[in-house]
Design a binder for these strands. Sequence first.
DNA 1: TCTTTTTGCAACCGTTTGATTGCAAATATA
DNA 2: TATATTTGCAATCAAACGGTTGCAAAAAGA
Lengths: 106, 106
Amino acid sequence: MRRDVFQAIADPTRRAIISLLALQAMTPNAIAEHFQSSRQAVSKHIQILSECQLVNQKQTGREIYYHFNAQKMKEVDVWMDQFRALWETRFSQLDNVLQNLKNKQS
Amino acid sequence: MRRDVFQAIADPTRRAIISLLALQAMTPNAIAEHFQSSRQAVSKHIQILSECQLVNQKQTGREIYYHFNAQKMKEVDVWMDQFRALWETRFSQLDNVLQNLKNKQS
DNA sequence: TCTTTTTGCAACCGTTTGATTGCAAATATA
DNA sequence: TATATTTGCAATCAAACGGTTGCAAAAAGA
């Protein structure tokens, strides 16, 4: 059972759930209303997000509000640091210009 | 067959391959030497990376050099933009301080 | 030419994934 | 108390995943 952040954001439905919760904490039922699949299917996605701590839950009565945990998402950002220089430097921009010229020729 | 960038970086072996190729373009054999699994298994990972355009190939003779495509990785970075404000603003830092205090109390 | 090297592709196999349905527990409401 | 609502959990299933082995094609070297 791999339960890391990278595996969690691999599924498009889970990415959509994350985007929803980043705007506002919601209950499973409220989340499920945004999707066509069953409540249980959405609930399983939430469970996966919960296991890798991308979301936290706060129970009030019988309702459970799921909150997005931005700090966990930062782990992806940290991994991406090693590539960021490759598209931010002028060198790579120059490379792109040359590459585009080459593609137009061939 | 989902073949997007998010699915591609979900696997730890593929992430390692990407990190290797970001430093230097390599042939499948050279890549496979860095891992314990078979060359064919690594080759399948490369194929997936190739299908979602995270790597490009340049053939010279019978050798194929795989190059990392940073621009494609940028798609992940763009998706993360929506969350970046949540950990960079002073507001969220204040939230963390309050949260930590709350956790220590309970 | 014959052999070696490099690579991709197909077949197979056990495990995981993402979805479904059904059901039980806990809380709120009439 | 009886009923409705909210939620989680278990069982099931087809498809995808990640690995293996075997083999064929193309290029390089003896």
